[in-house]
Design a protein around this nucleic acid. Structure first.
Length: 797
RNA sequence: GCAGGAGUGGCGGAAUGGUAGACGCGAAGGUCUCAAACACCUUUGGUAGUAAUACUGUGUGAGUUCAAGUCUCAUCUCCUGCACCA
C-alpha cells in the first residue's frame, strides 16, 4: 500500500458531505441535468458489485457534468416495498419496517463508502408514509378517471408465495421471486387500464433516445398486430362469435373454430350445450396445468368439441364445429380464433389430432406434411382466387366491413395491469366500500399500514390485512360504516413515479410542486438493468402518460434517454450467486484496494452495455495505476503551464476523456489516462499544470485520491468546486508523426514525417526507405495513394 | 420459431475502411532484498531467422477495394430477450 486510501477516502467523503458538494438546487439559473439510476431493493444480501458499476458510471458523468457548469440532480432512494423486503422480514422474524430500516442502513453506508455523489438530502424510501401517501393519492386519480376497475380475472397464482402475480411476474410459468410453478386461479382484482395506452406507449418511443435493445423490449412487450375482427354467426342461436385474425385472407380455409376454455359464451349458453360437464372438466384440468406446461411441454394439442353449437363461415356459409382448447388464450385477442389448419402450425396440429378437414387456400407447400406458412396465390377462395396476400387481405377486409360481418382492427399483446396483491408489505389500496355507495376513495391519506405482527400471508391467499378488524372496519365522520380494501399495491407502483418525487422530496402539500416539475422536466438520462427494460419501464411510462393526460406533469415521456448496463458475472463467467460461491462483496474490495480502485476497475472492465466477468487480478491492476498516480507527485514542479513534451498529449487526452465519458466508453477513457500517466512517468519532471489536468480528468472516476493529491500538491481549488478542463483543437495534432508506407497494401516501412508535408514530399520520403525500395525496384508503379498525416500506399505491378 | 447482439493473443478487451492486438491482467527473464512481498526494467499473437526481415493471423467461405476486424452476400457457433400472440 503506497497511499493510505482508507484515511483519504473517509476524509473526502466527510468534506463533500459537510460542504453539501453535490446538492442539486431547485430553480438554479445554471442549466439543469437530471441523471437517474435505478434505486435498489434494500434486500438482505447487501450491495452487489453490479450496483457499483452502474452507480460509478453515472457518478462519473454527474461529476463531470457539474464541473462543466450544470446543476445536476443525481438522487438515490430505496424501493423498499414488495416481496423481497417482506421475505427477508419473514425469514428473520422481524417486522418488514425494521428489516427495511436495517437493510437501508447497510446499503447506504456501502454506497457512501464508494463516494458516489448522490444528493442525499433527497433520499426517501417507497415505504415511507410521506411517500406512499402520494402513491395512494395518484392511485385515486386513476380510480377517479375511470382507469381502475375491479374484475374477476384468471390470475397467476403462486402457491408458494401465496400471492397473485402479474403476467410479467409470472413470465415463463415460474414465480419471479421464488421460482415455484405458477397456476391459474380466478380472483377479484383491481386492474389499471394500461391497454388503453398501448398505442401511445408505442408512439412515445419515437420521442425518446433509448438504446435499441431497450426500445425493442418495449415494442415486443406491447406487440401491436394489425388484422380484423370477424363475426361468425352461431347457427342455433341469435348470437355470433367474434374472432381476431391477422390473416382475414385465409377465411375460406377455416374448417373449425377454437375458443378459450374460459370463454364467457360457454356459461352464457350453458343450456344449449349438451356436453357442458365435459367442457367444465376440461377447463378445470387446464387450470391445474402451470403456464409452463401449457406453453412449453404440452405442444400436443388437447381440446373438446362443443356439442349443440356450431358456427357458419360468413363467406362460404359452410357449417363448422367449435372446440375449446387451452392453446387459445382468453387474454389475447377475443379469446376465440378461426382455425385455418392449412396455413397455421397450431391449427394444423389440432386438425390432425381431431381428424378435421384441411383446405389449402394459398398455393404452395405440401399440406399433407405440414401447414404451409409461405406466400403464394390464393386458391379455393372464390372472390380472391389468384390474388396475392396484400390484395386479398384488402378485398376481404373491405368485404366484411361492407357486409357488416367485421372490421379492420389493431390488437395489442399488452394487457391491463393487475394492480392488487394479497400481501402485507405494500401500499394499501386507499378505497372503501359499502353496499349503498359501492367503492369510494378514502380522502384521509395516507392509509397507513397497521403496526401488526401478523403480516404473513394467509393460507387461503387473502391479504393478511383482512384479519385486522381495526383496519378493515371504517366509520366516516357521518357515522356511515365502510369496509376498507385490504389488497395492497404491487412492488411496481412505488417505482412508477419515484423520479418525480426526487424533484421535490419533502413537499407535504403536493406530490411534486409544479415549479419543480417545470424546472427539472424530463429525466435526461436513466440507467438501469436490462431486466427492467420491459416491465418497470413500461409501468413507469404508462403512469407518467396518465399523469400527463390529466395535467399533472408537463412531459408525456418521463425519460429522455435510457441505457442498460451489462451484468457483472462471477469469475468463470457465470452469474454471481450464493450457491455457486462466486459472489464478490464490494465491501471486501473497498477494504483491500479502496473505493477508487474498485470504481476504476469496474469502469475499465469492458463495454458498459455488455456483460463483464469479474477478475480479482484486474482490480490489482487498477490499484497499481492509482499507486503510480500517487507516487508521481514527487516529480511535480512549480511551473504553471504544460510541459512542452506533453502538451499535445494533454490536449488529446482531454478530448478523449471528455468524449468517452459522454459516450459511456469508460474503459477507453481510463486507458487514455493510463497512457498519459505512462508518458508522465517517462519525464524527469512534470509541471503543476500537467498534474492538475491529469488529476482533474481522473477525478470523476477516482474522486478521492485525485482530491487528495490536488490538495497535497497545492494545485488549486478542490475539484468539486472546479471547472472541467478544455482542450485547444489546434494543439491536438503533433508537428511530427510516424508515416506508414505500404507497397500493395502491405506495410514495408515507417518513417518520421512532418504533419504539414505535401503529398509529393510524403511520396519522396516513402520511396527513400530501403525496404520500400527493395519492394518496388524493377516494378512498374501503377499508382500511389497518399493519405496526409497517415500513410502512403504504392501500388506496383 | 421470432427479434436483437457478439465471435480478435493465455485472459479482459482496443482499433473515423488506412500500422490489428492500444490499455490492463497473466507469463518469462532481470534489478532491488539475507529472503519474500511491494516496486521497477525488458520481452511477450504464431512460424522461420542471431538479426534485418519474410510468411501467417480478427469463427468459416466467397466478394467489393490501392487497402477489410471494419463494407456486401452466404454460413457456423455462442449469448440475451420474447414465445401456442391467432
Amino acid at each position: 500500500m503506497v497511499y493510505n486510501f482508507k484515511e483519504i477516502e473517509k476524509k473526502w467523503q466527510k468534506i463533500w458531505e459537510e460542504n453539501k458538494a453535490f446538492r442539486a438546487i431547485n430553480g438554479s439559473s445554471k442549466p439543469k441535468y437530471y441523471y437517474l439510476v435505478e434505486f435498489p431493493y434494500p434486500s438482505g444480501s447487501g450491495l452487489h458489485v453490479g450496483h457499483v458499476r452502474s452507480y460509478a458510471a453515472h457518478d462519473t458523468m454527474a461529476r463531470k457534468k457539474r464541473m462543466q457548469g450544470y446543476n445536476v440532480l443525481f438522487p438515490m432512494g430505496w424501493d423498499s416495498f414488495g416481496a423481497p423486503a417482506e421475505q427477508y422480514a419473514i425469514a428473520n422474524n422481524i417486522h418488514p419496517k425494521e428489516a427495511v430500516a436495517e437493510n437501508v442502513k447497510v446499503f447506504k453506508s456501502q454506497i457512501q463508502n464508494l463516494g458516489i455523489s448522490f444528493d442525499w438530502e433527497r433520499e426517501f424510501a417507497t415505504s415511507d408514509p410521506d411517500y406512499y401517501k402520494w402513491t395512494q393519492w395518484q392511485f385515486q386519480k386513476f380510480f377517479e378517471h375511470g382507469m381502475a376497475y375491479k374484475a374477476k380475472t384468471l390470475v397467476n397464482w403462486c402457491g408458494n408465495c401465496k400471492t397473485v402475480l402479474s403476467n410479467e411476474d409470472a413470465a415463463g410459468g415460474v414465480c419471479e421471486r421464488c421460482n415455484a410453478s405458477v397456476v391459474q386461479k380466478e380472483q377479484e382484482q383491481w386492474m389499471l387500464k394500461m391497454k388503453d395506452y398501448a398505442q401511445d406507449l408505442l408512439d412515445g418511443l419515437d420521442d425518446t433516445e433509448y438504446s435499441d435493445r431497450v426500445k425493442l423490449a418495449q415494442i415486443e412487450w406491447i406487440k401491436r398486430s394489425e388484422g380484423a375482427l370477424i363475426n361468425f354467426k352461431l347457427k342455433e342461436l341469435d348470437e355470433s362469435l367474434e374472432v381476431f385474425t391477422t390473416r382475414p385472407d385465409t377465411i375460406y380455409g377455416v374448417t373449425f373454430m377454437v375458443i378459450s376454455p374460459e370463454h364467457p359464451i360457454i356459461e352464457k349458453y350453458h343450456q344449449q350445450i349438451s356436453n357442458y360437464e365435459e367442457l367444465e372438466a376440461y377447463k378445470q384440468e387446464a387450470h391445474k396445468k402451470t403456464e409452463f406446461e401449457r406453453t412449453q411441454l404440452n405442444k400436443d394439442k388437447t381440446g373438446v368439441k362443443i356439442s349443440g353449437i356450431t358456427a357458419a363461415n360468413p363467406l362460404s356459409n359452410k357449417e363448422i364445429p367449435i372446440f375449446i382448447s387451452d392453446y387459445v388464450m382468453m387474454n389475447y385477442g377475443t379469446g376465440a380464433i378461426m382455425a385455418v389448419p392449412a396455413h397455421d402450425e397450431r391449427d394444423y396440429e389440432f386438425a390432425k389430432k381431431f381428424s378435421l378437414p384441411i383446405i389449402p387456400v394459398i398455393d404452395g407447400g405440401d399440406i399433407s406434411k405440414e401447414a404451409y406458412l409461405g406466400d403464394g396465390v390464393h386458391i379455393n377462395s372464390e372472390i380472391i382466387n389468384g390474388k396475392n396476400l396484400d390484395e386479398a387481405i384488402n378485398i376481404i377486409s373491405d368485404y366484411i366491413e361492407e357486409n357488416q360481418i367485421g372490421k379492420r382492427t389493431v390488437n395489442y399483446k399488452l394487457q391491463d395491469w393487475v394492480f392488487s396483491r394479497q400481501r402485507f408489505w405494500g401500499e394499501p389500496i386507499p378505497l372503501i366500500y359499502n353496499e349503498q355507495d359501492g367503492w369510494k376513495t378514502d380522502k384521509n391519506l395516507p392509509v397507513l399500514l397497521p403496526d401488526t405482527v401478523n403480516y404473513k400471508p394467509t393460507e387461503d391467499g387473502k391479504s393478511p390485512l383482512t384479519n385486522i378488524k381495526e383496519f378493515v372496519n371504517y366509520k366516516d365522520k357521518n357515522g356511515v360504516e365502510w369496509i376498507r380494501e385490504t389488497d395492497t399495491m404491487p412492488n411496481w407502483a412505488g417505482s412508477s413515479w419515484y423520479w418525480l418525487r426526487y424533484m421535490d422530496p419533502h413537499n407535504d402539500k403536493e406530490f411534486v410542486s409544479r415549479e419543480a416539475l417545470e424546472y427539472w422536466g424530463q429525466v435526461d438520462w436513466y440507467n438501469g438493468g436490462m431486466e427492467h427494460a420491459a416491465r418497470h419501464l413500461l409501468y413507469a411510462r404508462f403512469w407518467n402518460h396518465f399523469l400527463y393526460n390529466i395535467g399533472l406533469v408537463p412531459y408525456k415521456e418521463p425519460f429522455k434517454k435510457r441505457v442498460a448496463h451489462g451484468m457483472i458475472l462471477g469469475e468463470g463467467g457465470a452469474k454471481m450467486s450464493k450457491s455457486l460461491g462466486n459472489v464478490v462483496n464490494p465491501d471486501d474490495m473497498v477494504n483491500l484496494y479502496g473505493a477508487d480502485s474498485l470504481r476504476v476497475y469496474e469502469l475499465f472492465i469492458g463495454d458498459y452495455e455488455k456483460d463483464a466477468t469479474w477478475s480479482d487480478q484486474g482490480i490489482v491492476g487498477t490499484h497499481r495505476f492509482l499507486n503510480r498516480t500517487y507516487r508521481i507527485k514527487e516529480k511535480v514542479t512549480d511551473v504553471n503551464k504544460y510541459s512542452q513534451k506533453l502538451e499535445c498529449l494533454m490536449h488529446q487526452t482531454i478530448k478523449k476523456v471528455t468524449d468517452d465519458i459522454d459516450n459511456m466508453k469508460y474503459n477507453t477513457a481510463v486507458s487514455s489516462l493510463m497512457i498519459l500517466l505512462n508518458e508522465m512517468e517517462k519525464q524527469e519532471v512534470i509541471t503543476k499544470k500537467d498534474y492538475r489536468t491529469y488529476l482533474c480528468l481522473l477525478n470523476p472516476i477516482a474522486p478521492h485520491i485525485t482530491e487528495e493529491l490536488n490538495e497535497i500538491c497545492d494545485l488549486g481549488d478542490p475539484f468539486y468546486k472546479s471547472d472541467w478542463p478544455v482542450y485547444d483543437k489546434d494543439k491536438i495534432v503533433d508537428a511530427e508523426y510516424e508515416l506508414v508506407v505500404q507497397v500493395n497494401g502491405k506495410v514495408r516501412g515507417k518513417t518520421v514525417s512532418r504533419t504539414d508535408a505535401s503529398k509529393e514530399e510524403m511520396e519522396k520520403q516513402a520511396k527513400s526507405i530501403d525496404n520500400v525500395q527493395k519492394h518496388i525496384s524493377g516494378k512498374e508503379i501503377v499508382k500511389i495513394i497518399t493519405i496526409p498525416g497517415k500513410m502512403v500506399n504504392i501500388v506496383v505491378k
